[in-house]
């Protein structure tokens, strides 16, 4: 079934929308969740929550790319669950490694709760991504959005592991400088 037809089912409040979403994007969303959580049952729970969130958000939303839309919901849910699990000392997998890498960008975390406007930060990140060449951008997004491992990225792009690592290192440094220029306290 095409995306537009599934979205229409959501708008009609037809529960077939969830079955079709699961059929078409279930594995996709599971992969995204599993990359964050590294746990099968937690990931399945995340995917189930994704359909509930999708049901609650359509309408009013009418996404053109349903896969990207659902994937974004899954990732958000998975990160929230990761935070919760980390607090319970259960967090594992690639997320912890990726977060450690991102700590290079922001330096030492402030003990004081900084009130970061996530909307502005998103805009800054998108502006930064637009400045990158395509290969670097793909590597960066695969690593920090999809949380793919360095090996997965290297294999998928026919690059060496060291090339991917080096690209990520340089891009993180560029992001750090960029965010400083954008006025973030780093």
């Amino acid at each position: 079934m095409e995306d537009v037809e599934i979205v229409e089912l959501y708008w009609q409040r037809n529960e077939e929308a969830i079955r079709e979403s699961d059929r078409k994007y279930g594995k996709y969303c599971f992969k995204i969740a599993h990359n964050v959580l590294f746990d099968r049952s937690d990931s399945e729970e995340c995917v189930s929550d994704t359909w509930i969130k999708a049901w609650g958000s359509m309408p009013p939303n009418r996404p053109e790319r349903l896969g990207a839309y659902l994937g974004r919901i899954t990732r958000n849910l998975a990160l929230n669950m990761y935070e919760k699990l980390t607090a319970e000392k259960r967090g594992a997998g690639e997320t912890a490694v990726a977060l450690d890498e991102l700590s290079e960008v922001i330096g030492r975390e402030s003990d004081v709760e900084a009130n970061v406007d996530l909307t502005l930060l998103k805009d800054s990140i998108n502006a930064f991504l637009r400045r990158l060449d395509k290969e670097t951008r793909i590597i960066f997004v695969r690593r920090y959005y999809y949380l793919a491992t360095v090996k997965e990225i290297a294999a998928g792009m026919h690059l060496s592991d060291s090339k991917v690592k080096m690209t990520l290192l340089r891009t993180r440094e560029k992001l750090r400088v960029w965010l400083q220029e954008e006025g973030y306290e780093i």
């Binding site: 997320t95 909307t119 998103k122 997004v141």
Partner: peptide, 8 residues
Amino acid sequence: LMKAMNGI
């Protein structure tokens, strides 16, 4: 930062 990347 990780959550902000949801807005890519």
